[in-house]
Design a protein around this nucleic acid. Structure first.
Lengths: 299, 299
DNA sequence: ATGTCTTACGGAAGACGTAATAATA
DNA sequence: TATTATTACGTCTTCCGTAAGACAT
């Protein structure tokens, strides 16, 4: 049963007059007659009892009207809701990423997103790890892709988009630098250079205070920026733990990246401010999540 | 939003795979793609998040699926119910009428009915007033159009289809025969010939036992058939009350019909046996009721 | 190289309007 | 005669399949 048949039937069931029905539907009276006739053939019997001067519903038609009205109203409501929901996907979406490999994914997602939601303007900026949540909290940014998760109050931990294996970063002439792989157990003798500005939970997860066997690990010094860490290590002040992916973007003569076998993988996920997510932001979350799933090869 | 769009969307929302959706709907994959694309343009934004290797619902699409499923299921149920209801309109419909003017309406209605329900066989017979409910009670007849109402147990008083003014039937040489109109008050001096076989309530309604002022009216003799009444009156044995319409079918030299001003109109309606009405019978009731309304000029 | 979604194009089904016809008051 | 529903027919939209293209694995 086609839409025009439903609408013609319901209109005629109300008007009980072919000409007025035709006028209401902006079609010719002949069309109403033929549409109803065809519908009645499909149903199998008359829905209207009619002469050239009178139109009335049969009992079958009466019940049909009642039931169809309910169902069709719900269908129209569904369409209306969907239309309204997409209408709200508009306005600028301000995005931030913490590291180049997050940025790469985000730029690809933004291309798809602009394609699908032409009404949306997308702006992307890099963020400083020294102030991971400042822009989000200040309302300067709507969504960020960065190290995950966080304990920051008011910040929502969205979906994880990808993970990277952990690595140990050492000076080139470090005792561990020749190894193919190291364990957390190997870290005990060396000071661990850490990064301030991370939320406490995330900090403890990334930088252990003891090796698996219980030996203490000294945290020293505490750097304020990522480049500061690179300098400290280059100077032989210690080692640090980070994503293996960093090697592709921050390799230097005097530094060596070594796979870290037993540290937890580094997770990168979406973060936004609780209650400040708009329809456009949610739509971008869907787009980038979908793209990341494709990258992971999941089905 | 067209039916094929709804069905394509719902199928794809379940399958999340264009090729399988196309196979299920017996269309080509290209068609599914174009249909969804067009639907998304109409809604205003993406309902699916897709690459060439992955299909997922957006949050808008998710909600749309939930709501559309409910409404569309109701629409389909309504169609199914209507189809089933008309499927039952089949088999023979056996009709009876009590007088020629009832028969005239019934034959016209039967023509319309046969036209609208080709699967139904219609048989019409005249009934005897002497045994008004025998055929109905015995199950030989499904529906009858006759004097209305009745008190007969088990018989349903259906809708009144038309009414006729009452008349007094007298011999040509009767004292009242020259009058243009008579009142019930005029009947007191003359024996009233009545008709047995009527249900008690109807009998009392048609044949008063007293005039409006309280004078008794003698009921004598009590006839067994309509022709018997005509003979009695022709012989000068008394007068009777009947429908003015009878004059068109039962006029004789020795009889005179006089309008009866203050008797209740004679009602003709449909009667059937309680619980034995089929879908086909109800459909015929609708057809003949509609035709009678047209005859009455109601709108 | 294969599986999957998308696009381009020609053919067919059917929705539509116009206008003539039939039925009713 | 006026109003209304129905029927007939030509036009045009659009739905559809086929086949080639684009993209990802």
């Amino acid at each position: 049963m086609e839409r025009h048949e439903i609408e013609t039937f319901l209109a005629l069931a109300e008007e009980l007059h072919f000409a007025r029905t035709a006028e209401r539907l902006r079609v010719s009276p002949g069309r109403v007659s033929q549409t109803i006739k065809k519908l009645e053939r499909r149903i199998g019997g008359p829905l209207f009892e009619r002469s050239s001067r009178r139109v009335a519903l049969t009992s079958v038609g009466q019940r049909f009207q009642d039931e169809l009205n309910v169902g069709y109203a719900l269908v129209q409501q569904a369409i209306h809701n969907a239309t309204e929901a997409t209408r709200n996907v508009t306005g600028p979406v301000r995005l931030a990423f913490s590291s180049p490999w997050c940025g790469a994914l985000m730029f690809r997602a933004a291309d798809q997103f602009r394609d699908r939601y032409p009404g949306c303007e997308v702006r992307i900026q890099e963020m400083s790890l020294a102030d991971s949540f400042g822009p989000l909290t200040a309302g300067e940014v709507d969504l960020q892709l960065s190290e995950w998760p966080t304990d920051e109050p008011g910040i929502v931990n969205g979906p994880v988009l990808f993970t990277e294996p952990p690595a140990l970063l050492t000076p080139r002439n470090h005792p561990l630098a020749q190894r193919d792989s190291v364990s957390l157990e190997d870290l005990a003798p060396y000071p661990l250079i850490t990064f301030s500005g991370l939320s406490p939970g995330f900090y403890d997860r990334r930088y252990p205070h003891r090796t698996p066997s219980g030996a203490p690990i000294r945290h020293d010094p505490v750097a304020m920026t990522f480049h500061e860490i690179l300098c400290y290590i280059g100077e032989g002040k210690g080692v640090t733990i980070l994503s293996a992916r960093a090697e592709q973007y921050h390799s230097r003569q005097e530094l060596t990246y070594i796979p870290l076998s037993d540290a937890p993988p580094v997770e990168y996920g979406l973060l936004w401010h609780a209650g400040r997510d708009t329809a456009a932001v949610r739509a971008f979350v869907e787009t980038i999540s979908h793209l990341a799933k494709s990258d992971r090869g999941e089905r």
